[in-house]
């Protein structure tokens, strides 16, 4: 890890040179919604937006994609055609989300499709402006120390730039003239001030300590039935969650041939079909059971397995669920044994 300093006005020039490595993507806002889009320059990006509708997982693991083409002889992988991309403007929670995806897709069973996209995607983080839906302070994901290639912390006049990988360092070296290693006392004071400022921005009232115990105690709580009655089973929570990673696999065949493709697309355990097994039995036929699985997985089971929750506090479930079922309301309801209005 190395921390450099860059004048803010030099960012456009840096990104211009970085484009030699690959396509530049960043958060853009159109008609009131923010999403990652391919851009030509910094001026098209919206760095003030707190969150995109869909987290950057879509680049590493697209909503729907073809894994391979097959015919009667065998199959040919559809790898190799992924473009090299630079994602600029990822917030600490987004990077934490990708670190969780890495655990799932690169460790025990390495997923070749994810691995290729991860390899060809540079993650350039950027500090954020928390809003009332941000909960990263409660999930210990408000700052990030790994997972990115570069991370830019906005300190008004200049950026402090964390170099997190050799690829990130390569980008820096393309315009070494824009970066300085001379950091002094004022930089430390400014950074300390910035951390204080950021910590003071959080307005959400949420405390996730002790959640594994609360979930264990509340496993048979009638709260789940109450929440199940409210839940629309629309699955939006899974689509927008940076750590939801379940998928469905379906073959498509070309008309009149034995040739076709095997496709993979995002699925959600909130859907009834998700837990149907051969023979038609459904282990989680009740909506309440599915809801309990989702939240137990995020805030209890994942902690047991990986030592941290599978919630990065991004607030997307808070911003998305039409009936206010989210990490904040569910954990509070379970603790207080009452579903809030």
């Amino acid at each position: 890890m190395m921390i450099l300093k860059m004048k803010k006005e030099d960012l456009p020039a840096f990104l211009e040179s970085a484009k030699e490595w690959g396509e530049l993507w960043g958060p853009t806002t159109k008609d009131g919604k923010t999403s990652y889009a391919k851009v030509d320059s910094l001026s098209q990006m919206d760095l003030k937006a707190t969150r995109t509708v869909i987290p950057p997982k879509k680049f590493l693991y697209p909503p729907r994609f073809t894994m391979f083409d097959f015919d009667e002889e065998g199959f040919v992988e559809r790898t190799g055609d992924v473009p090299k991309r630079i994602l600029f403007g990822l917030h600490p929670c987004d990077v934490h989300g990708i670190l969780i995806m890495d655990k799932l897709f690169l460790e025990t069973y390495k997923d070749p499709y994810y691995a290729e996209r991860r390899e060809k995607t540079l993650l350039l983080g950027h500090s954020c402006i928390p809003d009332d839906k941000c909960m990263c302070f409660a999930t210990n994901t408000d700052f990030v120390a790994e997972g990115f290639d570069l991370f830019f912390t906005d300190l008004k006049m200049f950026y402090l730039v964390w170099v997190g990988s050799s690829k990130g360092h390569d980008l820096v070296r393309m315009r070494a003239d824009l970066f300085s290693r001379n950091l002094d006392k004022n930089d430390i004071l400014n950074y300390t001030e910035y951390r204080k400022w950021k910590t003071a921005q959080f307005k959400a009232k949420i405390d996730l300590t002790g959640m594994p115990d609360i979930f264990e105690l509340g496993y048979n709580s009638p709260i789940w039935d109450e929440l199940g009655e409210k839940c629309l089973s629309c699955g939006q929570c899974s689509m927008v969650c940076p750590t939801c990673n379940c998928y469905n696999v379906v073959d498509e065949v070309d008309l009149g041939t034995a040739e076709g493709t095997r496709d993979r697309f995002w699925d959600s355990c909130m859907f009834r079909e998700y837990s149907v097994v051969a023979g038609g039995h459904n282990f989680r036929d009740k909506r309440a059971d599915r809801l309990r699985l989702w939240y137990t997985h995020k805030l209890q089971a994942f902690i047991g397995e990986f030592g941290k929750p599978a919630c990065v506090g991004c607030g997307r479930c808070v911003a998305t669920c039409p009936v206010d079922i989210n990490v904040a309301t569910v954990s509070t309801a379970l603790k207080e044994q009452e579903v809030g209005k």
Binding site: G32, K33, I54, C234, Q236, V253, D254, L255, R272, P322
Partner: peptide, 30 residues
């Protein structure tokens, strides 16, 4: 897609999930 699979002697697959699934893939605001 369904007819192609039937012709190939396979079972067609149709999405069972609600419209919201693909709506969110398109990053629409709810």
């Amino acid at each position: 897609k369904s007819v192609s699979k039937l012709v190939a002697g396979k079972h067609p697959y149709l999405l069972k999930s609600p419209v919201c699934l693909e709506c969110k893939w398109k990053e629409n605001k709810c």
